[in-house]
Design a protein around this nucleic acid. Sequence first.
DNA 1: CGAGCGCTTGACCGGCGTCAACACCCGTGG
DNA 2: CCACGGGTGTTGACGCCGGTCAAGCGCTCG
Lengths: 211, 211
Amino acid sequence: MVLFADLDEQDFSAIHTPIDDLEFKKGSTLYDRSSRSQGIYTLRTGMVKLVRVTADGRQRIVRILRPGDVVGLEVLTSPCYDSDAVALTEVSVCRIPVDVIFKLGANNQRLHLKLMQKWQQTVKDADDWLADLNFGTARQRVSNLMLKMRSPDDPEMTTIFSRDDMGAMLDLKMETVSREINQLMREEVIEQLDRLGRVYRIRNSELLMTN
Amino acid sequence: MVLFADLDEQDFSAIHTPIDDLEFKKGSTLYDRSSRSQGIYTLRTGMVKLVRVTADGRQRIVRILRPGDVVGLEVLTSPCYDSDAVALTEVSVCRIPVDVIFKLGANNQRLHLKLMQKWQQTVKDADDWLADLNFGTARQRVSNLMLKMRSPDDPEMTTIFSRDDMGAMLDLKMETVSREINQLMREEVIEQLDRLGRVYRIRNSELLMTN
DNA sequence: CGAGCGCTTGACCGGCGTCAACACCCGTGG
DNA sequence: CCACGGGTGTTGACGCCGGTCAAGCGCTCG
């Protein structure tokens, strides 16, 4: 209940339309650009990637969403979504139809404030993504991604993605991503914790930052 | 009056705080990250760049704003700005104190809708910027920038920036930008119209798009 | 055990960065 | 009027980072 955290009882009684709790499997798409609006989603657990296809047919990941983020805000003012949303892990979300937002929002100042905060966070995330992950050498990009994907409750842990996805995030080729990660491991800056190459421990965050 | 286009007389009478019309010279900064919020700006004429400084001290331009855009929306929910805003040309803006927005918004549904549309446009612009201008070869990036900066009322005309600024937008070095532009001119895809290298005519937009 | 997928690693190549020289525009001052 | 200097843009030579192509490894699942 990211958006409704501090609504009154009476606010809730105004809701007649159902709010669905949904689960998505790893790899399944919550929505794509062609689909009509089915509402906005608040992300409870898991990670979601927002994907666009460039003019020349390649995939570009424009942002990663994590628990607490809102997915698909754009349909509040637009009939369709701006990108595809694909689950990177098992994902559980809460889907809220657009008209529920408008009914509640009609005379609810606090919801407007919460929405505005979500918009602001989205813009900031987008700008951060551009400034931190798409600038500089391959090594800098990979380092910054490892830092950005740290676990909120244990900043030594970080979990990343398939090498292909990382390429689409950082504008690098899979092979380059692989090389940089293994280089960081040889230098003992990071340490692999699983067998699949997704979970790492950061042993020297200083060095990652000053790359 | 981008935001207040369809407000009632009575809405306006609620405003006591002054709304300033301001002018900025080319190169002057409207605000920077350290400055306290002085309100949001609607851009009437000219162009503004939003700039961030990366960890390693280089400048990154995250977006260009043009007439009709709103500058500094983030201070509606945050005490300070997320980036520096610098005038790329002579600029005239309309500055609206934050509390005016809140006073008007308290019971004005249409203003909320307008604001939401501005937020959505901002996110879309940010994502477009990432997907179109920071992906692919130098030639593709320069081509896409020329397309994005076309004049709204004459799509054959496009006006760009200093080579250094273009580098900070596209994550390329000045020299590379210069080479690509001159290459496009030799191929007669574009044609320079001024002596400073800012205004061009697009002679073959097909070719620019399919690069 | 073998097929298939994702990841790693090596060899090679090309595009972009680096460094430097130079052209051009403009303002200033002689 | 020209001489000069600084800022911006262009162009060339060269080197290196990251892309390309290909082989091989290690899982997982049939």
